[in-house]
């Protein structure tokens, strides 16, 4: 059982390390909260906006007390770069009657890091106002990538091939899986 304990410890450690590796600022498909209201941002189709191309920006809202309703708010989307508002648009419900999901088309005019802000101004007096800021990085290439990753792919491929060759050789000479010869 000691093995199991040790393994459990290792996994916990791994998760903690994994989490600490990714302390980057918030961006797409992530949650932000303010004043008891939260939203998950999803930039369609794959959270990877490209400069100059209109993309659907989708918010899934919820709140701490439950029963969030978009009808209680006027929500405004702003794309801010270097303290200048580069794009602004209201966020209507995704379809008539949708209470938790809002969506609008937005265009990130140029490459760079933006603050994507969703500001909710209550039209219902009990609803708390909120301002949610997501940081979004916009790439230039049509595939939304900031680098090619070629070196990583080539070196990773090589290292795996070498490991495979070492494994094949050592396992073969070790003879662990050889069938015992019948006399």
């Amino acid at each position: 059982m000691n093995h199991a304990k040790r393994f459990g410890g290792m996994l916990t450690l791994a998760v903690v390390v994994a989490a600490s590796l990714f302390n980057a600022s918030a961006s797409a498909h992530v949650l932000q909260s303010d004043n008891g209201v939260s939203a998950i941002l999803h930039i369609k189709p794959d959270d990877n906006p490209v400069a100059g191309k209109p993309v659907p920006v989708n918010f899934l809202f919820s709140n701490d007390v439950g029963g969030f309703s978009l009808n209680d708010y006027k929500v405004q989307l702003r794309l801010i770069q270097n303290k200048t508002v580069k794009f602004s648009s209201p966020v209507p419900p995704l379809f008539f009657g949708a209470s938790t999901e809002g969506e609008t088309m937005a265009t990130f005019p140029e490459v760079g890091v933006y603050s994507l802000q969703a500001k909710g101004t209550p039209v219902e007096k009990d609803a708390p106002p909120f301002t949610l800021n997501f940081t979004v990085r916009v790439a230039s290439a049509a595939d939304g990538k900031t680098g090619s990753g070629k070196t990583a792919v080539i070196l990773s491929g090589f290292s795996l091939i070498i490991l495979g060759m070492v494994a094949a050789k050592t396992i073969q000479t070790g003879g662990k899986y050889r069938k015992p010869k019948l006399k």
Binding site: A24, T146, A152
Partner: peptide, 16 residues
Amino acid sequence: YWYTKSVYGDSNTAAI
């Protein structure tokens, strides 16, 4: 980890 970092930089897209 290396691959996503080199393709998507420090952005959260790398984590996604």
